[in-house]
């Protein structure tokens, strides 16, 4: 029975993540529009876009190979797998022992890897450019992620998400330690880089020369585009949930009953809305960095993460 429940919870949180991801992105867009004194598209606009893409034809380059066709499925599939691994509303979850934070990071890297290959597949210069930039940023963001993970792992001695969450939940003092704040700041910058937000990448850009993520998917259309965009929205939601839950785990359900789950869902959505607002505000405020200034920002985040780890070692 409990087994059934916990697997049901897994499926439930996967569906919830997939269902809410377009709304979250729509919310950020809507907030940004309001901050630009515009009426803007309603927050549910991304759902309409998804529906439209799924109904449109696909046009595929004659140069492209099966990599181009397989990539949307791989990107989406790996993201879906990650939604099973990250505790969103309850902890611990059934898949906790299946994959830890490193698995989460590398699964997302799997998607990026194939997306970059697909960018090269059509043989156009823009696709190659996007692929090259995306991999560059992914590579130099990697050390920060790993160090933030180690910063989080020191307390609980484990990289498993459930363990980390339980440790923070049982020891609230750890959550307000300096290392926690530093790790949060470091991870926040990396999340902006990984999800292609300002000031690293502009999700609304039309100028190919300034694109990173968009440039790789210029060739995609129809259902392929739907899958890739949906996956990247879900990735955005997952990263925000990681930020929210790893550093402020309160509100998550530790028992699987309906009321606690409902409460936890509400708390989770609340946290997401808060973070989304922060990002919308930030994106209104800052301008995009030149590509070759991005490494500076990322090395700043690396130093923050290093400080987080060493301070937690010193203060232990």
């Amino acid at each position: 029975m409990t087994n059934m429940m916990s697997y049901g919870l897994e499926i439930g949180q996967m569906l919830l993540a997939l269902a809410l991801a377009p709304g979250l992105v729509g919310l950020v867009r809507w907030l940004k529009a309001r901050l630009q004194n515009r009426l803007g598209a309603p927050p549910w606009q991304p759902y309409l876009e998804l529906r439209k893409w799924l109904a449109k034809d696909v046009v595929m380059s004659t140069n492209a190979s099966w990599i181009f066709q397989a990539t949307p499925y791989i990107v989406f599939g790996s993201t879906v797998t990650v939604t099973l691994l990250v505790p969103l509303i309850a902890t611990p979850i059934a898949f906790d022992a299946v994959g830890d934070l490193l698995v989460v990071v590398y699964l997302l890297l799997l998607g990026t890897f194939f997306l970059a290959l697909a960018g090269l597949d059509a043989g156009t210069a823009f696709g190659g450019m996007g692929a090259s930039r995306e991999m560059t940023i992914a590579a130099i963001a990697e050390p920060t992620i790993a160090l933030s993970i180690s910063g989080l792992a020191i307390g609980s001695g484990s990289t498993n998400l459930g363990q980390i969450l339980t440790t923070t939940l049982t020891d609230p003092a750890a959550a307000i330690s300096p290392s926690h704040f530093l790790a949060f700041a470091a991870l926040f910058i990396v999340v902006l880089a990984e999800t292609g937000r300002l000031p690293i990448d502009n999700p609304a850009t039309h100028l190919e020369l300034t694109m990173i993520h968009e440039a790789m998917i210029l060739e995609y259309s129809g259902r392929y585009l739907a899958l890739i965009e949906w996956a990247s929205w879900t990735k955005f939601l997952l990263f925000l949930s990681l930020l929210a839950n790893l550093f402020v785990p309160w509100g998550m359900a530790t028992l699987v009953t309906l009321p606690t789950l409902a409460l936890a869902t509400a708390a989770w959505i609340g946290k997401l809305i808060l973070l989304a607002s922060a990002i919308a505000l930030l994106e209104t405020r800052v301008a995009k960095l030149r590509l070759f200034r991005v490494p500076e920002l990322l090395s700043l985040s690396f130093v923050l993460a290093l400080l987080a780890v060493t301070s937690s070692l010193v203060l232990k």
Binding site: K56, V58, M60, S61, T62, N63, A122, G222, R223
Partner: peptide
């Protein structure tokens, strides 16, 4: 929609 058309890059 599962239609796919091949065209130039």
């Amino acid at each position: 929609n599962f239609r796919l058309r091949r065209s130039e890059s």
